[in-house]
Amino acid sequence: MVAMEKKSVFKIAELAKIEIDSREEKKFEDDLSDILVWCEKLMSIETPERNTNFTPNPYIEPNLRKDESVKNPSLESSYKKNGYFITDKVIK
């Protein structure tokens, strides 16, 4: 269960540049708690995790003066044409 704390309501109101008195504070605390409990339905939906395992960008221009600095694995197996690395993806 999510419950909105008094402290949070005041803090949030401060952020929102809205002044609330103690009567309003109680009302908003109750309302926001109800809404947040209701929003818990979102958590029951399975969503894919953010993919942080990106394929290295094959379009990054390699530093041709210092070939040894190229650590990009997709470039290691590629060949050079006119001084540029050409990867499968680029050819495709």
Binding site: S8, V9, A16, K17, I18, E19, I20, K27, L32
Partner: peptide, 20 residues
């Protein structure tokens, strides 16, 4: 003062929810 006196309760509720 301007915002608190002029926005209605429903608008305040949604602004607070949005900030939260």
């Amino acid at each position: 003062a301007n915002r608190s006196e002029s926005f209605g309760n429903e608008v305040k509720r949604r602004i607070l929810l949005g900030n939260f």
